[in-house]
Write a protein that binds this DNA or RNA. Sequence first.
DNA 1: TATGACGCTACGGGATGCAA
DNA 2: TTGCATCCCGTAGCGTCATA
Length: 267
Amino acid sequence: MILRTYAPQMPLSMFIESFWYMQGYHPSHSRELALPDGSVEVVINLGEEQIRLFNRENKELLLGHTMICGPHVDYFVIDTAIEATTIGIHFKPGGIRMFMKEPLFELLNTHVSLDTFWGARANELRDELLAAQTPEVMFRVLERRLLSSALLPMERNPSVLYALKELPHSRVSEVIEHIGMSHRKFNQLFKEEIGMTPKQFNRIFRFQEAMRLIGNGDTIIWTDIALACGYYDQAHFIKDFQSFSGINPSDYRSISGRHHNHAALLS
DNA sequence: TATGACGCTACGGGATGCAA
DNA sequence: TTGCATCCCGTAGCGTCATA
């Protein structure tokens, strides 16, 4: 399998975590659990077949060759059999707002074809990527295309940036009080920019932190993981983990895959 | 259009039980 | 002892409505 990643330069780095390219990923399992991380991803399939996913209710979603994976607080399932060659843009929380006018909460827990928002530009981008010879050239194509389509001025809302920094270890009410907005106004702004409520973001961040610790640890003591991530105890940690992933932490540890946000489904 | 008041819901704190 | 599951209760978070 070939996997390449690239972190774009300023000013794109304010909005985008990384570009990635994957070729020849043929795992033994046919489906993969994708766990919520609160961010948005654009995925472009460079192969022939359409992108195929399944939501939490196991409902099939066929999405053509390009899609936006909206901010998720739910898990979904990827059909790995058709994911032969793909390239993607991993946005920072709320980062995609620089490239679309619509409020991000419309994309919560959804996948939509990229052309819904980008029109003909979506297919033009895919055509240009198909013509590129190497992943490095593709990354430059993405960089150039995104820079030319960004909404100006390229800057982020300071209140939302402050909240993103503080929410993981502060109460929502404290953050809102410091910003000096009414809770309703701030929640509306946060949902438009990030796609979910401040509390949902807080919980997702903690869930992500737990998965990172599980991935890094040789011997796992679940109580330690729970406390380190800010859960009151192991019981609440498990409950939260199941609500976000549909599986319990020990199962996750035994099936976690190519990335801590992905886990192989064996049946 | 923004905000205060209010009520509902979901989450967090705490306790406990069961199985391996 | 550890991991998982469930329950109860108080309250933070969030949505709705009325009002300025």
